[in-house]
Design a protein around this nucleic acid. Structure first.
Lengths: 160, 160
DNA sequence: CAGAACATTCAGTATTGACTGAAACTTCTG
DNA sequence: CAGAAGTTTCAGTCAATACTGAATGTTCTG
């Protein structure tokens, strides 16, 4: 790993950490975005990032749950391979969009909590809920539109 | 504050904390979404949340920077009033959308770091950049569309 | 300008939580 | 089935950081 690459990996670590993930999650994702070959074993990643196997294991699960990486296996090989292919960007975006859903649901819980308050008091939270409900509906549509409009432009394989 | 309201405030604290803000930021925002009157002084907030003045001060700046609350003053009153009116939801969304920009910029930094690598190796990051650039462009448009389409529906004052 | 009312800063404390590394577990090979 | 190769779990350590509260700074009033 060159110095520039190492800096990129480290900055990605800080960035994802600033959004509530762990630094290691950012480092691992960053590394999988630039590494060669694109598929790496846990051991390779641990060595590249100079991290423990335990950290890689936990972080891999976190990233996979967020839809940010892919785990693949090969027959006759006990090892697991991790990668961050283009498909994961979209699933990451879609899972990121679920944040809007969480906010809307929170607003609805709040409205239940203040069920017996006058309408004027509730108006703020109702508006809050409406704004987020709208974005929650529209963002997935934006990502889908990229898949259709943008697919050819970047030479990516068309899907579905 | 009723038990239900207190639970809402606390859950909002946990939720924003999970996205990299402080629990206090979430509590304060949550409280400002449901409190009566909608505008509250630092002293009132500190008492409601049973937090120190110092915490309120720092958190208020954080939330104001993120566009999530408004600070207002009144002539002949040294105190500052905090509130979370509907306008702030949109500015919050817009600042949330800037996250896509950060990701795109990060991809571009990464591409610089691997400038002398073969095109096949760079393809992943290029795709990454393209996806996020697309969403970065489109999400503000979604929010704007809400402002136009949704304004009447929720009885909110039309703007601009 | 003195003093009161409020806001901010910051050093210190307590808590949280990220990471390590050894032990336990799983899965494949001969 | 024994052993090897790999992965996951988890108790413990250490660093990061959220919050407190006293001291400092600021702004308005008489």
């Amino acid at each position: 790993m060159t110095d520039d690459e190492s800096r990129f990996v480290e900055e990605m670590g800080q960035m994802l950490a600033s959004y509530g993930m762990t630094p290691m999650a950012g480092r691992m994702w960053g590394w999988l975005l630039i590494c060669e070959p694109p598929e790496q074993t846990a051991a390779e990643i641990a060595e590249a990032l100079r991290a423990s196997r335990g950290a890689i294991s936990g972080t891999a699960r976190l990233l996979a749950n967020a839809g940010m990486i892919q785990r693949t296996t090969r027959s006759g090989d006990r090892r697991e391979y991790f990668s961050a292919p283009p498909e994961t960007f979209e699933s990451f975006l879609q899972s990121a969009a679920s944040i809007y859903r969480r906010f809307r649901l929170m607003a609805e819980r709040g409205l239940e909590a203040m069920a017996d308050r006058p309408p004027a008091s509730r108006a703020r939270l109702e508006e809050f809920r409406d704004v987020f409900a709208f974005v929650e509906r529209e963002v997935p549509a934006v990502v889908d539109r990229f898949l259709r409009e943008g697919a050819g432009r970047t030479g990516r394989k068309e899907r579905a």
